[in-house]
Amino acid sequence: MTGTVNTVLGPVPSADLGVVAVHERLVSVVPGAQFAYDVRIDRAEVFEAVAAQLRAFRAAGGGTVVDSTGMFHGRDVRLLEALSRATGVHLVASTGMGPEAMLGGYFLTPQTNPPTPWPADRFADLFTAEVTEGMVVPRVERRGLAGLAVTATTRGGRTATDESLLLGVARTALTTGVPASLRSDDVDDLDVVLKEGLPAHRVAVVADDPLAVVERGAYAVLTDPARVLELVDAGHAERVLLTTGGVGVSFGEDAPTASYADLTTALPRDVATQVLVANPRDLLAIEKR
């Protein structure tokens, strides 16, 4: 599939993405960690740390990194713009939020009696505006267009708010043509999105059961190259994606550090061309309906 992809510096042809590190977290801030007494976030230090990783990725043949943190998990649009300009790596940012435990009270207890979760259409309107009008820089402006809509569901069982988020992401993807991306431990969450009418090839899922994901026609996002090769050998090469599973810089959590450059040598060349170039190119290209 060819088309354009929303990057933080503007739309680019999907054919120009090159090797893609998909479903990454460049900067991750657990909501509230920025206010903790023992957490110090120096944007200059963050910039240098992430820029070094991106330069190494580019030197190894990488072209694009997709940031899947969504709206409130450390996304800094201005920082992403500066990183892309400084390193030459395309950066694709995301809209969306979740799971429920990571949402602020504003999204959990609207002024109703009794309190009820936000409806799906309200989430969809919020996310769609970030794709079509620009991502919100709090209290300042909108900058850049989100390139995908993401959410995650609660481990151990989907909540009512999680379901609203899933439907909101699906409706955003249907309206705007960007893909949807899910973190889920239950393939039933994917079924919720598909029943909304979103085609399976427009969805990427980080899930515990990747085989169930690809059998439904969606993309399975994996962190283990060996599992990628297993699915490729089983005939699912066109529905597999590889991510580092790490974080560029994180605050408020213990997370492995991402090594984007390592992705470029993680798979045999023919498999890498499919999994790291062709598949993310097809997924990320905006598909108008």
Rank of each mutant, 00 (worst) to 15 (best):
Ala261Arg: 11
Thr69Ile: 14
Ala146Tyr: 07
Val89Leu: 09
Ala51Leu: 08
Val187Ile: 14
Leu145Gln: 13
Gly144Gln: 12
Leu283His: 07
Lys195His: 15
Thr64Ala: 02
Leu198Asp: 10
Thr172Trp: 03
Pro117Asn: 08
Val89Ile: 14
Glu24Ile: 00
Met102Lys: 04
Glu238His: 15
Gly177Met: 02
Arg143Met: 15
Gly168Ala: 06
Leu229Tyr: 13
Gly62Cys: 09
Arg142Gly: 03
Thr243Asp: 02
His23Pro: 02
Ala21Gly: 03
Ala56Trp: 11
Gln53Asp: 03
Ala51Phe: 04
Val271Leu: 05
Met97Tyr: 11
Gly63Phe: 12
Thr273His: 15
His201Cys: 02
Val5Ile: 10
Phe35Val: 05
Arg171Met: 10
Leu83Pro: 00
Val66Leu: 01
Ala120Asp: 04
Val77His: 04
Glu100Ser: 11
Leu91Asp: 03
Val187His: 13
Ala51Thr: 06
Val169Glu: 10
Gly3Glu: 11
Gly62Gln: 12
Tyr219Pro: 08
Thr153Ile: 08
Ala146Leu: 07
Arg183Thr: 07
Leu231Met: 06
Asp209Tyr: 12
Gly252Leu: 01
Leu165Val: 09
Pro115Arg: 13
Thr128Arg: 12
His201Pro: 06
Glu133Thr: 11
Asn279Thr: 04
Tyr37Ala: 14
Val169Phe: 11
Gly88Phe: 13
Ala120Trp: 13
Leu103Asp: 02
Thr95Phe: 10
Thr176Met: 10
Val247Gly: 01
Ala146Ile: 10
Asp76Arg: 11
Val27Pro: 03
Asp162Val: 08
Val206Met: 08
Ser259Val: 06
Ala36Lys: 14
Tyr106Asp: 11
Ala49Val: 05
Leu17Gly: 03
Ala129Leu: 08
Leu174Arg: 13
Ala149Gln: 05
Val50Gly: 01
Gly144Trp: 09
Gly96Ser: 07
Trp118Asp: 00
Asp209Thr: 14
